[in-house]
Write a protein that binds this DNA or RNA. Structure first.
Lengths: 121, 121
DNA sequence: AGTTGACTTAGAGTGCACTCAAACGTCTAC
DNA sequence: GTAGACGTTTGAGTGCACTCTAAGTCAACT
C-alpha cells in the first residue's frame, strides 16, 4: 500500500496531479479510517498506463472516457477498443511528423556545421 | 504576394494565429499603403518551417528566440545551432516514447480482439 | 505538549497557445 | 455608390492541464 506521495514517486506523477486525476474520475484510491488515500499495485499499473497515454498527448477528457467505459464493464469493450485504435493512429501520424521533422533538422544542423566551419577558417 | 487569408490557406495556419505570431515577433510581413499585410515566398518557407517546429511541440517562446537570433545575424549561428540540436534531441526522445506506447497499445488491441472474438462465440 | 511534516478539502490561479469580439477601414463587383 | 467580403486594431476570452493556496486534520517523533 502506498500513500499519495509514495505512489507519486513510484509513477512519477505529482501528488497534486494525482488528486486532480481523482477528481476527474481517472483513479479511485480507497481511503483508510482517517481519510488518507491508499494506493495498491493495481493503481500503479493503471497510472503507468495513464502516464503513457498522457505522454503521447491523449487528452485527459479521453482518458476519463476510457476509464468510465472500463468501470462500466465488459460490454463496453468495443468502445474502448475504438478509443485505443484511434489513439494508436494518432501516435503513428505523430511518429511520421517527428521523423520528417527530424530529417529536416538534420539538414539544418549540417548547414550550421558548414557555416561554423567556414567561420573558423 | 499573398494577403493574410491567402497565406493562411497555403501554409494551413489560421489568419488569427498568423497575427498572433506577428505580435510575438515570429513573422514580419511588409505592409502596403493601406496597412494590409503582404506575404511572399520567403514567408511561406519560414512559416512551413515554423509549423514543423510547432507540430513537434517546440514552444512558441523558443521559436521566438530562434527568430530573434536569426534576425540578429550570422554571429548567432552557434546559439541557433544549439536550439536546433536540443529540439532534435527532444524529437528523438519523443519518438522513443511514441514507439513504446504504440507497442503497448498493439498488445492492448490484441487483447481486445480476443475478448471480442470470445464474446461472439 | 509541542513541532514537524504529510495528509485533507474547495476553490482560485497559472501558463500556454491560441481564439474571438467589437469597432472600424478598404477593396471589388454590380 | 453601396453591399459585402475582406482587411485592420486592441484587448479580452477560452480550454487545457495542471498547480497552488489557505485552512485545517492527524500521526509520529522529541
Amino acid at each position: 500500500m502506498y500513500t499519495i506521495s509514495e505512489i507519486a514517486k513510484v509513477v512519477d506523477i505529482s501528488a497534486h496531479t494525482l488528486r486532480y486525476y481523482e477528481k476527474e474520475g481517472i483513479i479511485d484510491p480507497i481511503r483508510n479510517e482517517s481519510g488518507i488515500r491508499q494506493f495498491d499495485e493495481q493503481h500503479v499499473q493503471w497510472l503507468k498506463f495513464v502516464k503513457k497515454l498522457r505522454e503521447t498527448q491523449m487528452p485527459v477528457s479521453q482518458i476519463k472516457e476510457y476509464t468510465r467505459l472500463f468501470l462500466e464493464g465488459e460490454h463496453t469493450a468495443s468502445a474502448r477498443f475504438r478509443l485505443i485504435e484511434d489513439h494508436q493512429q494518432y501516435i503513428r501520424d505523430q511518429i511520421d511528423i517527428l521523423l520528417t521533422t527530424d530529417e529536416m533538422l538534420t539538414k539544418k544542423v549540417a548547414t550550421y556545421k558548414e557555416l561554423m566551419q567556414k567561420s573558423l577558417s
